[in-house]
Design a protein around this nucleic acid. Structure first.
Lengths: 238, 238
DNA sequence: CCTAATAGATTGACGTATCAGTCAGCATAG
DNA sequence: CTATGCTGACTGATACGTCAATCTATTAGG
């Protein structure tokens, strides 16, 4: 409203002027020319997306939020990713790979070092999740409200995770360290406890340190998994 | 576009005309005049909301979806509820009450009937969730993508649930049926396994019946919770 | 017992805000 | 000078919440 005679004649240059005096410290972004630079920029966007998604959830996160967190403009996100969905899918894939890498390393350790026990393997996995709670939120919590578009992807990731845990379980079953309960159900139970505790502790942050909680979960699991002998790591509680 | 001379003069009666021949069976809704009728209508809306929310998730559900499912018009939802948020909050509260009622009944049973065991209490809770998977989705899964507005409410509900389970755990600890592990952590573990399995089985629907899964979880828990005796429910697996 | 008037339950089109995705233009490295 | 990384205003679509109009059950009046 008002006298819009002038506004109509505004030029593109004027519209695109930037306030050069507002925040001069973070201005003039270095351009990503080489492929290496572009990979870095992609990673920066993914890192920003991980932060924002895990904080606000998928639907409450806007592309503008991610752009702001990554110190980029809105449009630049679309220079590197086709859509919000594509960005989230890629983020899931990247995070899944980190998880897989970790599990595989743990399995390798387990088969290589003879002193490694089932307890150590589970504890290490537990601490891995404790160290990256954003990953827990992204991969194991957001699934539902995300709708059909992501359900299949998240389901596959979870299946893969449980499958990897199952391989560890089978390994120790063959060694006779734990009983021959159905390995898939055992693996799923372990996954459930790890993800729920990781999720939980990042909500409430009670006084308990991660190691104490991990010890508890492992003891709870082991007492049910250890074969019945006279005294084999009998848990003196309290 | 086109000759809109007549359309402009359309009367309100014409705009509100209903297609009397299209679907005559569900037309002419009976009005809710009495307080009892209004309560029924509210409940119908809540039931419709539960169905749609648990199917599509919070953000993907529109008021139009709920209205359609409840056989009401869009505007009528707002006659009974102030906003989508208020509707969801009330739904959470109603579902929480159903959960509380169930747990309290189970506890009463447990203290009254001497033959009731810890196993029976846990198994009953497990089956309760299995029977109402929509509740699991609503109360224990949607929390994240819902954002700050509901996190506190959902957190309170979960805390209450764990607290109730904890009371059951303490009860059986006093009876000496299970060891004196930290009751809150034990309760949280039970809650984690129940909700995760209920959630999981409604995703994959593998061949396993609920009773088999419940048996497995209980056995896994018990082997860790039973005091060390000679032979007390030793699990001959396979 | 029938008809008119009132209350309040019901409807759906509209206003408005949000946000994903587009695009025309700007700016810098080579 | 040119290619292309980068920008942010703009567009279209979606969906919440509002509201004036409509309809029906109940009451008041003849």
């Amino acid at each position: 409203m008002g006298s819009n005679t002038k506004e109509v004649m505004v030029t593109e240059q004027q519209k695109h002027q930037k306030s050069n005096d507002a925040s001069p410290q973070e201005r003039t972004l270095k351009r990503a020319i080489s492929d290496a630079d572009k990979d870095v920029r992609r990673s920066e966007i993914l890192a920003a997306a991980k932060r924002v998604f895990s904080t606000k959830g998928f639907h409450s996160t806007t592309i503008a939020d991610i752009a702001k967190d990554a110190n980029l403009s809105y449009g630049s996100i679309y220079w590197y990713f086709d859509s919000k969905d594509a960005l989230f899918h890629e983020l899931m894939t990247v995070e899944e790979q980190a998880l897989k890498d970790y599990i595989y390393a743990a399995r390798k350790d387990a088969t290589t070092r003879p002193d490694q026990s089932f307890q150590a393997a589970v504890q290490a996995t537990f601490e891995f999740f404790e160290a990256d709670k954003a990953l827990v939120k992204l991969l194991f919590r957001d699934s539902y409200a995300l709708g059909d578009r992501f359900e299949a992807h998240l389901f596959r990731i979870y299946e893969g995770f449980v499958g990897d845990v199952e391989a560890v379980v089978t390994h120790y079953q063959e060694k006779g360290e734990i009983i021959d309960a159905p390995p898939h159900l055992v693996a799923f139970s372990i996954a459930a406890l790890i993800t729920e505790f990781a999720h939980r502790r990042l909500e409430t942050d009670d006084g308990l340190p991660a190691s104490v909680v991990a010890d508890f979960v492992i003891k709870l699991l082991l007492e049910g998994l250890l074969p019945r002998r006279k005294d084999r790591s009998s848990g003196q509680s309290n």
